[in-house]
Simulated assay, not measured.
Amino acid sequence: MTTVHADIYRCDDTPGVITLSNIQKDKNCKKMVLPPVEKRARMDASSAASAKSSDAANSKEAKNKSNYENAQGERKRIIQEELVLEQDRLDAINAKIANLNSPSNKSANKAKELAALQKKQSLHQGNIELLQKELKK
């Protein structure tokens, strides 16, 4: 058996799409840490047979728990990313509002634009509050 060594990167470029690569393509690619080959070596047939019968139920339960924990971790990561995006959007709206509130920018059109921005500001603030509440669960 020949052993090959390479770095493996997990790239989460598009929502719902995971790409594995030996090249770090962008900042969304994270190097995977895998156990050494020796630890991944196959168990011999006798120990596998005895382990299989006694650990089948425990293995399934552990796998389900692991899948649930992985899903929870991924959910939390996605919510945190959304929280950062909403905060960025809110910051951009706040900057526009501050610019429109300056004394040199007073006109009828500016008042309408300001009202629309304030609605968006309220929406983003509400989204941030909901995302923060969701993270605390």
Rank of each mutant, 00 (worst) to 15 (best):
M1N: 12
T2S: 15
A6M: 14
Y9F: 14
Y9A: 07
C11H: 14
D12K: 12
P15R: 05
G16M: 04
I18T: 15
T19H: 11
S21D: 02
N22P: 00
Q24T: 03
Q24A: 13
K25V: 04
D26I: 12
D26G: 15
N28H: 15
K30W: 02
M32A: 09
M32R: 04
V33E: 05
L34V: 08
M43Y: 09
A45Y: 12
S46R: 08
A48E: 15
A49G: 00
A56R: 06
A56G: 00
A57G: 07
E61L: 15
E61D: 14
K63G: 01
K65H: 08
S66W: 13
E69P: 03
N70G: 11
Q72N: 08
G73A: 08
R75V: 12
R77S: 02
I78Q: 13
I79N: 00
E82D: 10
E86K: 07
D88W: 08
R89K: 15
D91V: 14
D91A: 15
A92R: 13
N94A: 15
N94F: 12
I97Q: 07
A98G: 09
N99V: 12
L100Q: 09
L100D: 11
L100Y: 15
S102E: 09
S104D: 13
S104A: 11
S104C: 02
N105H: 11
K106L: 05
N109I: 04
K110A: 11
A111V: 02
K112M: 11
L114W: 03
L114V: 09
A115V: 10
Q121C: 08
L123W: 01
G126P: 00
G126M: 06
G126K: 07
G126I: 00
G126Y: 06
Q132I: 01
K136N: 10
K136M: 13
